[in-house]
Amino acid sequence: MDNKNIVVGVDVGGSHITAALVDINSRSLIEGTTVRKAVDSKGSAAEILSVWKAVIKDTSMIGGCSIKRIAFAMPGPFNYENGISLIKGVDKYESLYGMNIKKELADCFNIQDDQILFRNDAEAFLHGEVAVGDFDITDKILGFTLGTGFGSAYSYQGDTRDLGIGLLPFKETIADDYLTTRWFRNMYGTKTGQFNNVQQISQLAQEGDDTALQLFNEFADNLAEVLGKQIKEIDAVHIILGGNISKAQEFFLPRTQYQLNQEGIFPQFYLAKLGEQSAIVGSAYLFAPLFDVI
């Protein structure tokens, strides 16, 4: 395979890592090259990096090409320019704190440091969605990932930036503590003694469980409160949602939209088209800005 326009795109999640080859010219993943593996994000640095390296190697082998460029969609806090992990106090990947991931991988794959780039995962998610969507380049678009973390990003005229809304003060702590999977797990556990995951709570809501339905209503109200201020400030017209919680949108999104409408806010909501793949595509665009390929 010709490596000229090929990038190994990598999405690092809280419990997994996924990689695939991306063709920048076609703005798409190369079919059949996706590799996904579970990661113990509480493991040692050596254990975590061993899995990351294996996934990257497997992806390139499947695609029949050598590793020339790698683009990561990474959760923060992270020094994205220099490739140094600053993740601490978030119950995942803390063993990587202070480590130069870029140098570690460059040495492993025998490539130059500048051929390994890092991007905030929410930013990569939104850029990937905008790149494959039918949006006008002048539209102001917000993207939010609802999962193990609350990611936020803004895209306008081909430029996509992380917003870091999850770190803003909200209620007793920060927004991230109220709009993530751990909020559902902790709240449901506190109320029932059963610490279920979001998928299980969603199924319970489907079955009419009052506690599950109540939690989704509370989540909807929290989401509307956090989003409302940002939508007003940016004058966004489109909102794209991704992450595992978004898969249960039927239990919270109508209420969120209603609450926003009551405040005179009427954005158009969309669910991610590419799902997990959007962050992989969006990270690969670091090697070819959006305007260069549209």
Score class of each variant (00 low, 15 high):
96 L>Y: 11
176 D>W: 00
20 A>L: 07
216 F>G: 08
132 V>T: 14
279 A>F: 02
195 F>V: 02
128 G>W: 01
190 T>H: 02
82 N>P: 04
55 V>A: 13
151 G>I: 03
165 I>M: 12
150 F>G: 10
209 D>T: 08
284 A>E: 04
39 V>P: 03
110 N>L: 11
177 D>M: 05
73 A>W: 01
57 K>I: 02
44 S>M: 13
74 M>A: 05
192 T>K: 06
66 S>R: 07
202 S>H: 12
202 S>P: 01
131 A>E: 13
54 A>P: 00
192 T>C: 03
168 L>W: 05
159 D>V: 13
25 N>V: 11
40 D>L: 11
119 R>T: 15
207 E>K: 13
227 L>G: 05
160 T>P: 01
277 Q>A: 15
173 T>N: 10
16 H>C: 06
141 I>P: 09
286 L>T: 04
276 E>K: 10
99 M>L: 15
219 F>S: 02
172 E>C: 09
173 T>C: 05
294 I>L: 12
254 P>C: 02
272 A>S: 15
111 I>D: 10
249 Q>C: 12
232 K>L: 14
71 A>M: 00
35 V>Q: 12
47 E>M: 08
244 N>E: 08
107 D>K: 08
36 R>E: 07
59 T>I: 02
9 G>L: 01
270 Y>H: 15
165 I>E: 13
221 D>G: 08
212 A>D: 02
214 Q>H: 14
42 K>N: 13
156 Y>Q: 10
137 I>W: 14
119 R>N: 15
142 L>P: 00
188 Y>D: 08
43 G>H: 12
105 L>D: 06
211 T>V: 12
283 S>H: 03
148 T>W: 05
123 E>R: 08
173 T>Q: 11
60 S>P: 02
234 I>D: 06
269 F>A: 05
5 N>W: 01
168 L>R: 10
221 D>Y: 01
212 A>N: 05
45 A>W: 07
8 V>W: 00
92 K>N: 10
221 D>N: 15
57 K>Y: 04
229 K>S: 14
152 S>Q: 09
1 M>C: 06
110 N>T: 09
151 G>W: 08
12 V>Q: 11
273 K>V: 00
250 E>M: 15
155 S>Q: 03
64 G>M: 09
135 F>E: 09
185 R>K: 15
137 I>S: 14
32 G>C: 03
8 V>T: 08
29 L>P: 02
95 S>V: 00
203 Q>H: 05
224 A>G: 13
162 D>V: 00
265 I>D: 01
192 T>S: 09
8 V>F: 04
95 S>Y: 10
122 A>S: 07
207 E>R: 08
79 N>I: 00
270 Y>Q: 10
105 L>V: 13
130 V>D: 06
79 N>K: 10
248 A>Q: 03
266 F>M: 10
28 S>T: 14
227 L>A: 13
47 E>L: 07
217 N>F: 04
281 V>N: 01
